[in-house]
Amino acid sequence: MAYGAGLWHSRTVAGLRLVLPLASVVLLSMLFLLSREIDPSRAVPTAAVDAEDLARDPRILASRLSSVTVDGTEVEMTAATLRIAAGGREQTEAEDVTARLTAPDGRENHLTARRATVDGAAEMMTLAGAVTMTDGSGYTLRSERMLIALDRSSARSPGPVQADGPLGRIDAGAMALTLTPVPGGPATHQLRFEGGVRLIHQPEPGE
């Protein structure tokens, strides 16, 4: 390279060594001088939940609880809202609850209720308020309260139960769903109505 070209090269390098740092300083300062001011009080626009309300009343949304009992029944509960009950640490309350009990043989019982309280210490879940249960064999039961154990297979309605099913309309003083061994196979759920039972069966006319 001729001598003149070398001079030109070093002169541009010296110029760039001066211009480039200056440009970066200017660019950097612009970043802070011109940025939008941030309003910390405004909630994140995309949050679907009202942050203040949630802060005031701490609860979990769309929660799911599941447990498997000692003898193999799977208990699952999903709720629209779940919060720690005022009572004690181990107590939680849920609203708009659906629950599912799956017997070892795969037979499922689906329950819905307005409210549920889960007592961790007693390992018991209480469904209350318009409790309905649909079981595998076509029965739909209605009760006001259902106690579901989380450690062993037992779901029962201590109070009156109304059921509609293949046999007809059944009214009973109480109901229990128990696990019954099946010879040679996984255990299944047995529906037991107690405390006085009345069944009305309307035969199909004209058979």
């Binding site: 064999s137 029965y139 099913g165 046999l167 007809g168 059944i170 009973a172 047995q190 529906l191 037991r192 109505f193 107690e194 405390g195 006085g196 039972v197 009345r198 069944l199 009305i200 069966h201 309307q202 035969p203």
Partner: peptide
């Protein structure tokens, strides 16, 4: 119609 009354019923 058939009406059945009893102490308990196992299904």
């Amino acid at each position: 119609p058939v009406e059945i009354v009893a102490a308990a019923l196992d299904v």
